[in-house]
Design a protein around this nucleic acid. Structure first.
Length: 425
RNA sequence: GGAGAGAUGGCAGAGUGGUCGAAUGCGUCUGACUCGAAAUCAGAUUUACGGGCAACCGUAACGGGGGUUCGAAUCCCUCUCUCUCCGCCA
């Protein structure tokens, strides 16, 4: 959500931003509703002031024992008029809010303009391994090793689910522990958070109303399943004002993520790439408003470190204006190399949301010297998507005989295990 | 799931239809006293929106929403949350 006053005063800039994000929002309607709301408020406020004055007068008269009945009818008229106008304001406000919630965040000036094709590679780290044989896909490897099963999951739930067993399950847990252990010393407080959240939490973090079709809903109880722990972490401090000097606040949470993947029929149907449920370690930061751009670089580096330590080749891409997420002003995607696909695939997305979420959630920070509290800036990033890390390890560390080497840093988490071999699970 | 109690400013806690945005205490900030500090005294101390260059003015907010009334923190309805007791349960 943007500051309506800012939008009003920077119409040209906002129009360009909307165009750059390929947004279909009607800004003229936005401005018109905002104007009407203000006009109505001004005239109703005047009437309310009059009514308040009259009410005080009535109180005084009653105290003096005077008869107030003759005035009541007249004030009833004014009161009814106010009620009617309040109704009009509520209607305009509802319309305004509806459109306001559809306005995307304004991209940072350093973000390339355009759609997916305009995304820019920022850096490439590590060299994709050369295989003397044709590298297999992770699902082929996993199924052959006996640690990954889609058929069982299909029986239990349906398409786009998976089960891991034995060392496959243990590898998943090892990865999560490895990631959390690496983030903790950098100030990320580990959290366990709700996976079922209310509408307001989804709205605050920017998922709703725009992406409501992408969320699983528990309609009977008015809950939504989190598509990412970002939702829960972002809402941790909703409605709060941080004390001066108490930022940044950093959090990490390991949770499943639930996504309907509506509209992605036929895409990535094989393997672990696109599922209704997957595990992720999420990083989240609340920072001072002037610190968020540098925080984004640091957050991205924190996520990258996992890939570096695991020895997985990857590249960093800055997402173009129309490809970045709705709430973000700048997003870096981390893409890991997948030998079987001969391409880089997203494994993390790190975003600076500026004050967009903070405005929806009224999250502020007090300033030194008694100045007015300001909205904080929020950042989120995957550090990392555990399922995709799991599959990246299988693919990148596979050997000619179908076994998979375990990266050295993970071995302590797997009881010293060095290789995944068929039957061992 | 059943029965009951409650939700007020940073915190504690009064207020049960009329100058209540809200007593009082604590906390915090400023000033006085002091070499300095403590203690004491004096004052200040919510937020949002709108108008104004500004000083400032107006409106709204006592868990959320709705209602009664000329007027609601106060009465009514409803939802959420918290607490106590009972039941159930990892």
């Amino acid at each position: 959500m943007l500051d309506p006053k800012y939008v009003r005063e920077h119409e040209t800039e906002v129009r360009k931003a909307l165009a750059d994000c390929h947004s279909k929002v009607d800004l003229s309607l936005y401005l018109d509703l905002e104007r009407r709301r203000r006009d109505l408020m001004m005239s109703v406020d005047k009437r309310k002031a009059r009514l308040n004055q009259a009410s005080e007068e009535m109180a005084r008269m009653k105290k003096e024992g005077k008869d107030i009945t003759p005035y009541q009818a007249k004030l009833k008229e004014l009161s009814d008029e106010i009620k009617q106008m309040d109704g009009e304001i509520a209607a305009v406000e509802k319309d305004f809010r509806e459109i306001e919630l559809q306005v995307c965040n304004i991209p940072h000036s350093s973000v390339p303009v355009g759609g997916e094709e305009a995304n820019q590679e920022v850096r490439k780290v590590g060299e994709p391994a050369k295989f003397s044989f044709k590298p297999k896909s992770h699902d082929e490897l996993g199924v052959a090793l006996g640690i990954l099963d889609f058929e069982k999951a299909a029986k239990i739930s349906g398409a786009r689910f998976f089960t891991l067993s034995g060392l496959g399950a243990k590898l998943e847990r090892a990865l999560a522990n490895f990631m959390l252990d690496l983030h903790a010393p950098k100030g990320y407080k580990e959290m366990v958070v709700p996976h079922l959240v209310n509408y307001q939490s989804m709205e605050m973090s920017g998922q709703f109303p725009k992406f409501i079709e992408q969320a699983f809903a528990v309609e009977k109880d008015n809950f939504y399943l989190i598509p990412t722990a970002e939702v829960s972490l972002a809402n941790l401090h909703r409605g709060e004002t941080f004390a001066a000097g108490s930022l940044p606040r950093k959090y990490a949470a390991f949770t499943p993520c639930y996504r309907r993947e509506a509209g992605s029929y036929g895409k990535d149907t094989k393997g672990l790439i696109r599922l209704h449920q997957f595990n992720k370690v999420e990083l989240f930061q609340f920072v001072e408003p002037d610190k968020s751009m540098e925080a984004l670089e640091q957050l991205t580096a924190d996520a990258e470190e996992i890939l570096k330590k695991l020895g997985l080749p990857y590249r960093v891409v800055v997402l173009a204006t129309a490809d970045k997420s709705f709430a973000s002003i700048k997003t870096y995607d981390l893409e890991v190399w997948l030998p079987s696909q001969n391409q880089y695939r997203e494994i993390s997305s790190c975003s600076n949301c500026g004050d967009f979420q903070a405005r929806r959630g009224a999250i502020k920070v007090k300033k030194e010297g008694g100045a007015k509290p300001e909205l904080v800036h929020t950042l989120n990033g995957s550090g990392l998507a555990v399922g995709r890390t799991w599959l990246a390890i299988l693919e990148n560390y596979q050997q000619a005989d179908g076994t998979v080497a375990i990266p050295e840093v993970l071995q302590p988490y797997l009881g010293g295990l060095k290789t995944l071999t068929p039957g061992a699970a």
